[in-house]
């Protein structure tokens, strides 16, 4: 039953490019936070950049891009759970009757 799938070997060049992209996104995060006042949107911008970085790390550094479908299921299911935790808790928070 054990399956032998081919190990994908990522070239160093790809890792360096990904690292540079991550560094650039870090600089953008700091720059947006310090220099540009977007008000309440600031948080969303920071979260979106962080999400992009996490996705890149998962895809390339953690090899998710080259994995089979079951690994994808296990990688994405926690995101679904996170959305569930935030979504269903929000139903409570936004519908509370505050005296």
């Amino acid at each position: 039953m054990s399956e032998n799938h081919d190990e994908h070997i990522t070239p160093y060049k790809t890792y360096v490019i990904i690292w540079l992209i991550l560094m650039a996104l870090t600089v953008i995060t700091v720059y947006v936070a310090r220099e540009i006042d977007l008000g309440s949107i600031n948080l969303f911008v920071a979260m979106i950049i962080a999400s992009i970085k996490a996705t890149i790390v998962a895809l390339f550094f953690m090899h998710l891009k080259y994995e089979d479908s079951i690994t994808w299921v296990f990688a994405l299911y926690p995101l679904f759970l996170l959305s569930l935790l935030i979504g269903l808790t929000s139903i409570d928070v936004f519908n509370r009757i505050v005296p």
Binding site: D92, R96, I97
Partner: peptide, 16 residues
């Protein structure tokens, strides 16, 4: 999907 049934009397909203 069911965790907040432990919180029915903790002051959560009726909708939830």
């Amino acid at each position: 999907f069911v965790w907040a049934h432990h919180l029915f009397v903790a002051g959560i909203s009726e909708t939830a």
